[in-house]
């Protein structure tokens, strides 16, 4: 049990801090609670989803908040899931928060699962995930 402590700390150091994303300002997309997007979102910045997206999200960083729902793939360099995802998640760094519910495969290099998160699907590890190459 206590041996894991070191590993957990190391893991969090590799994880990008959420604060870093906020400094971007420009390139910061917000899909609010009352917004439904029926289609695909493609960008190079940060996408914050509080509403509903029915389609693929591809961005550098993606955060699905507690109220957020995605029916489709989430492809990113770093993805933080706090809401509901029905579809595959493909990101180098994936964080499934306590409120997360992912129904689909989670392709990852670094995966963090917080206690309480529901992951319903496979969790294949990959040496590197390139979000521009939409394979698998």
């Amino acid at each position: 049990m206590f041996l894991n402590l070191g590993a957990a700390r190391d893991d969090s150091a590799r994880r990008p801090a959420a604060g870093d994303l906020l400094a971007v300002g420009e390139g910061y997309t917000v899909i609010n609670q009352d917004l439904t997007v029926i289609g695909d979102l493609t960008g190079d910045g940060h996408i914050e989803v509080k509403g509903t997206v029915k389609g693929t999200i591809n961005s550098r960083t993606v955060e699905i908040l507690k109220s957020g729902t995605v029916e489709g793939a989430v492809i990113a360099e770093s993805a933080i899931i706090r809401g509901h995802v029905i579809g595959p998640v493909r990101a180098n760094t994936v964080t499934a928060a306590t409120t997360a519910r992912i129904v689909g495969s989670v392709f990852h290099n670094v995966l963090t699962i917080e206690p309480g998160a529901i992951l319903d699907g496979r969790r294949p590890w990959r040496p590197h995930i390139d979000r521009n190459l939409d394979t698998e």
Binding site: E26, G27, Y28, T29, V37, D40, L41, T42, G43, S59
Partner: peptide, 9 residues
């Protein structure tokens, strides 16, 4: 945001 492309409604 400016860098984002949305194909859909």
């Amino acid at each position: 945001s400016a860098d984002l492309k949305v194909i859909g409604d």
